[in-house]
Every structure is written in C-alpha cells, then in structure tokens.
Design a protein around this nucleic acid. Structure first.
Lengths: 335, 335
DNA sequence: CGGGTTGATTTTACCGGTATAATTTAGCGG
DNA sequence: CCGCTAAATTATACCGGTAAAATCAACCCG
C-alpha cells in the first residue's frame, strides 16, 4: 500500500494524494473526497520514513535519558510527554547511559529532524561521543552541558534547605552529598549551596559533616549512620536527594531516634514518593515536569527559528512536611 | 554529507561505499581502506532513514508503555534495554496511554521494521486503535492481548501469597484489588487466585474483605483503613501491588497497630522500593526485567522466522521479608 | 473573443540509501 | 598469450514520499 496505489485508485496523481494527506490547501473538495475515500478503502497509511527523508522534517522528537528506573527521570519524561502531546509531536525515548558511546538509535534521531532533548547528557559537546559535523537537529540539554541548557537552581535550593534548618535553630547541620559521577554538576552545586549558607551564618562545618553518597537510599542510610555515631552528631541532615533522605530517616530510627524530634531530615527532588513515606519528607522541590515541558517548548521554538535565552535556570521551592522540626537549641531557649 | 560525497572522495561508486558501511564481503582490503579513510575524513554517517526505506529493515525496535512514571514499567524497560544492547539492537520507548489512540510515532515504528514490544497494550487486536492491513512488524505483547504474549503467573502468585498467609495461621485475610482499568487482566487474576486459595482451605471470605484500589499508595491506605475498622478486622492483608501494600502498612501504623505483630501485609511486584521501606515488604516477586529481556529475545526470534510458543507464562516467587508474621490464631494455639 | 490571472493538478527531479543485474578486472590453466 | 571463471566494482532502478516548476482549466475583463 503506497501513495501510488491510492493515486491510481482515486484516479489522481501521487502529488494530489500527498497534498491531501499533508493537509495542504488547494485541493478541490470533490477531489479531496475521492482521495479520502480511496485511502479509507485501501487502509493506506503514509510512511513517515519516506516523508521525513523527502521532506526534510518530522514530527518526531527524541529524548535521551541515562536510565529509566530512576524516578527522577520518569518525571521529566512525563512532563515532556504531555507537552509533546499538546504540541502534536511524537516523543521517542532513548536510554543513553552516561559515559556510554552514542547508541545507533540516536543516529536515527539525528536524521529525524524534529529535535533532541537530552536529560543529563554524558556530554553533548564531546566529539568522541557525539561525532562532529553530523547533521544537528535542534538540541536542548537538561541538567547538562550544551548550547541550550535548562537547569535547576541547585545552589539556591541547597541554600534554602540549609537556611531553613538554621532558622529552625539547628547549628549542627550535616550534608549527604550526591553521586559525583552521574550528575556531577548537581551534586557539586548542592554541596556548594549548603556550604555557603552555613558559612554566611558563621556556623561550624567540620569535615566529618559532609558525607559522600550515591543518590541511593542505602547510601543515605550508611552515611547517616556514620554521621549519627559521631561524638558530636548533627541534629539535622540535608540529603542531596529524597532517596538518601529516606535512608537517613531509617538510620535515625534504627538508632532509636525520632524524626523530626531528635533529628530533622530534609531531602531534594520532591518526587511523589516523598509524600508516600512516613514521616512525609520535607524537601526541596525541583520542577521536574516543567523541565520536560519547557524542553519540548524550546525544541518547538528552535524549529521555528527562535532562540531561547540559554541557560535558563528554574527556581526550586522548599516544601515543609513532617521530617523536620525545631533544633534543640531553640527548645532550650524556650524552656 | 551523503554517500555520494564519500564515493566521490574515495573515487569509487556509491555502491562500494554502501558495501563497506554495511559490512558486506567482497570488497578488496585496499579499496575498503580508501573508503574508510574518506568516511573518517568527511565525518560521514549513514542515514538510517534512507537505509530503512531502501533496505526494508532496521535495527531499531520499539517498545510502547502506558506511562513512564510507573516504576513497574521502568523495570521492564530496563530489562528490555539490556537485552537490546546485548543483541546490538536499538530501543526506542514510546508512551501509549491505555485507551488512547495510536500515537503517530508508532506509525514510524511500524515502518521501521525491527519489531514492536508492547507493555500492557490497550489492545493490539482492536482495529479501531491499531488500523488493520497495516504493515506489521513482529509484535510481542507483555501482560496484554496479542498474537505473541508474555505473561506473569498472576493467579499463581496470588495463591502463593494467600497460601503463605494461611499457613502462618491467619484466617481473616483481606485483599486490596488492583486497578481494573489500566491492567484489568492482572488485577482480576490476582483476585481470582486469592479467592480460590482461601476457598480451597475453607476459609471465610466476607465481601467486605475484598476492597477496591487503584494501585496507588493512597488507595491502599484508604482501603486498609476501612478494612481495619471493620467489626471483625482482618489480621492479614494481601495487596495487589507493593505501593498499596505500603499504604496498608501506613494505615495500620496510623491506627496504632504494629506490622507484622498485629497485621501482616503482603504486596505484589517486588520493586526495588519494597526493600527501601520499613518494615521491608514481604511480596510476590514478578520477574519484570526478565519480561523485558524475553520480549526482546522473542522479537529477535520472530525476525529470524522462528515462532515462540505463545502465551508464555513466567512464574512468580514469594519473597518473605519483615512485613508478615504468624497469625493470632497460631499464637493462641501455642499459648 | 483573446490575453491575463488564479486555482487545481500533474510532471519532473530528488531525498539517501540498497538490490539486482551488468560490467570490468584479476587470476589461472593450457 | 588466449579463453574462461571468479571476484570486485559499477550502472540502473527503485524504496515511498515531497518540492518546485510546469501544465491545464476556468474565469474575468477590456
């Protein structure tokens, strides 16, 4: 079933059929009806491959993600998905594990000229990964390097968290750092924000209060356990993501501490699970769905020849729930 | 940069370049080297679109999923992803919300003849959704209808769970049913397994013990709350998935009950989060990654002309952790 | 009633590859 | 050194569409 078959059946030229299927104007209603009937009757469907090859464009956009079992990523994709649907675009998701070479599937995307949205890309600039002089569809990078980048205010968010805990009266605030391999930028910025905020308030910051993690729940548990066994343990822990914050809560509970009474815990992300956990997690909300949504919008703008101002940094928002409370010093003052 | 440019630069015909890039034999090493040099020098990359259009095949396979923020789905995709990589295939993920019409992106896939793996497809057979007489790439369905289906033994898994709880001495075992819209088959089968097992043991099964849910944590919480407030509350709850089981645990804790001492809870899925929750969840493990892996393997087999025996039903496995314990009747017997 | 428009439709060429058949080249025995 | 065969290479056609230019028809007006 090709366009030629339909044309023959309808008694018109291929081009007229093409004009009908592409919704172009300048086809007599009567002719259009005949073509439509022939299409209906034959069950014909345009071949998007041929269309993209000949037409030089396509309604398919690609999105690359480091992993799909990371809920964080799912949220972004969900946002992108909705925006794509609203814009009448199709979204194909490709996993591109960080550090890996470019999968061949991406070669397809590069020729499918709808555009490419990369979540935490290994490195969009690195020529050893992404061959140079390749035809480049519009590309937008989320949380990584690139010509057009969409970022979250990790630094500001971390300061918000630290400031919030300090305002509650906590003076011994520890931090569990995120993974420095998969998303080096984010982890480093959150650490910097935390450091700067404590510093600006003249709070002590022993080296032992900065504990490395991997973004996984287990690493948060281990790190918190070590922190809480310190001779001078923290009364609040700011974890670089929600999963590690949950781990920290569990570590505290294992040691017989109550959250938030004995230990305040603040996370980062505000994934849906932050609300499905006991106690509900106080956390720094990242606008993940907006990230995906904006990415698709930018792709659309780029296709129209517009140039979004890059980088664009989205603000975070502190969401106070049940895992955080007044610090011990504040209590003492009240009593 | 097209194949013609490379051919000109290397002083050979397009066809020779094609033979080199496709790894076909019958090219003199010396010629091959010259072509390779020209490719290297120009940064040429084959256009997979043109190749698929002309050659009638492709190494790209598609996978459709109802949603990407469902962790359940992420696991399957992860499995498929690994298998695809191992097989040298590229995997593109398309979201196809249940009940929705077929996204255009799938039209692309249908012409990119690598094959299609559908997770919980709305209905692969329904012609109003998936137009008939379309060129059909090999299609495998996971957990849904279709010519080649890969299923999990939901019925058996539910019986395992119910049997386990009964063996522990529980006699009042309730069930929180899964969503009947998104994955009607799974929810119904789990309910049936639960029913049959209790029945075969002559255990009472009041209507009130079967409570509807939506697979979300919140619905599990609500359902469990209602169950526990019954005049004759259950001592064990089998939830149709892990999220609702977590909700049930929370409901119990809210009412001052201890899990597993006062209430045993068993889930279904064994997602990574089942281990990151307190108490660790006893649950029926679904081989989700295997499902994805097998799906890709089947696609490969179909491409080679082999015919996997369908449907194939994968067994489940009961994973006992901390959320379940002996029933009260057993205790009484011992005392 | 002929020339100028406008609108609908078709013709021709091409997108960037591959299949197949035809052609050239190389190798070999006699 | 010739004829024959196998290997390497190339010419041609085609995959299924679209772009742009060309054609055709109908209409308007002086």
């Amino acid at each position: 079933m090709t366009i030629a078959d339909v044309a023959r059946a309808a008694g018109v030229s291929k081009m007229t059929v093409s004009n009908v299927t592409s919704g172009r104007v300048g086809v007599r209603p009567e002719t259009r009806a005949r073509v439509l009937a022939a299409i209906e009757h034959s069950g014909y469907q345009v071949n998007p491959l041929a269309r993209a090859l000949a037409g030089g464009r396509s309604r398919l956009i690609g999105i690359t993600v480091p992993s799909l079992s990371w809920p964080y990523v799912g949220e972004i994709v969900q946002g992108a998905s909705q925006a794509a649907e609203a814009a009448g675009l199709d979204l194909a998701v490709f996993t591109w594990p960080s550090g890996q070479p470019l999968p061949d599937g991406l070669a397809l995307l590069r020729h499918l000229t709808g555009g490419l949205l990369s979540i935490l890309p290994p490195d969009l600039e690195d020529e050893s990964i992404w061959p140079r002089s390749a035809p480049s569809p519009p590309q937008v990078s989320v949380g990584g390097p690139g010509r057009y980048q969409l970022l979250v205010d990790n630094y500001g968010g971390a300061r918000q968290a630290a400031a919030y805990l300090a305002d509650l009266g906590h003076t011994r605030i520890a931090h569990i750092v995120g993974a420095t391999d998969t998303a080096p930028h984010d982890a480093a910025e959150r650490l910097r924000g935390y450091r700067d905020e404590l510093h600006s308030r003249g709070l002590a910051l022993p080296d032992a209060y900065v504990s490395p993690g991997t973004y996984h729940e287990r690493s948060g548990l281990d790190a918190a356990q070590a922190l809480l066994r310190l001779p001078d343990p923290p009364t609040a822990i700011f974890a670089a993501n929600d999963a590690m914050a949950v781990g920290a809560v569990h570590a505290a509970q294992d040691l017989g501490l109550r959250v938030p009474h004995d230990l305040s815990v603040v996370g980062f992300d505000d994934l849906p699970s932050a609300r499905a956990v006991r106690p509900n997690l106080t956390t720094v909300r990242q606008p993940l769905r907006d990230l995906g949504r904006l990415g698709v919008l930018w792709l659309g703008a780029l296709a129209r020849g517009e140039q979004p101002s890059s980088p664009h940094i989205l603000p975070t928002e502190l969401v106070v729930r049940e895992s955080s409370g007044p610090g011990p010093s504040r209590f003492k003052g009240v009593l």
